[in-house]
């Protein structure tokens, strides 16, 4: 039996996989020991917790919200994206900047000399603008569809 086949039978993947994975764990271990040198428990909680919170909280929450939205828009499936996209973009901005938007970041003002009070208002204005753009887009699309339909139909008066 050739060595390649032996590795594949015992290990389940090819020899390149084994080498790369071993190298990866060695490097991750070297850096990981240093990463854990301080508050080891805290770092593990953050590292693993980040993955768990993402996979078991964030994804289910936005996926369920999306499913709910689709159910509401059941009869008009073409409308879903006109709500979905602005909500998603607005939510993304909140996710990235929530410490400033919610004024949690208490060090910001004394350190920078800048007020964080502008961020909540700006976020709400951006959200409003996203919905307006979406609404405008929907109106344009609807008008175009109507025109196309009336053009396609024979005139009723003759």
């Amino acid at each position: 039996m050739n060595p390649r086949a032996v590795v594949r039978r015992l290990y389940g993947e090819g020899p390149l996989h084994l080498l790369l994975t071993a190298a990866s764990f060695a490097l991750a271990g070297y850096a990981g020991v240093r990463l854990l040198a301080g508050d080891a428990v805290g770092v593990v909680v953050w590292f693993v917790g980040a993955a768990l919170v993402h996979d078991l909280v964030l994804v289910p929450v936005y996926a369920s919200a999306d499913r709910l939205l689709c159910r509401f828009a059941d009869r008009r499936p073409g409308l879903v994206n006109f709500v979905r996209v602005p909500v998603l973009l607005s939510g993304l901005l909140l996710l990235v900047w929530f410490p400033l938007i919610t004024r949690q970041a208490e060090r910001y003002e004394p350190a920078s000399g800048l007020s964080p009070d502008v961020f909540l208002g700006n976020w709400l204005l951006i959200t409003a603008a996203l919905f307006l753009v979406s609404a405008f887009w929907l109106v344009v699309r609807t008008v175009r569809l109507r025109r196309r339909q009336t053009k396609g139909r024979p005139s009723a008066s003759h």
């Binding site: 190298a23 490097l27 991750a28 990981g32 990463l35 301080g38 805290g42 590292f47 060090r107 910001y108």
Partner: peptide, 25 residues
């Protein structure tokens, strides 16, 4: 960058060593 230092320790070692662990994978 939002000066919200919630993470467990100083930013420099966490972000630097964390980057190497991540980059290995």
């Amino acid at each position: 960058i939002q000066l919200e230092y919630l993470f467990p320790g100083s930013f420099y070692p966490l972000h630097f060593y964390g980057a190497w662990v991540f980059f290995a994978a």
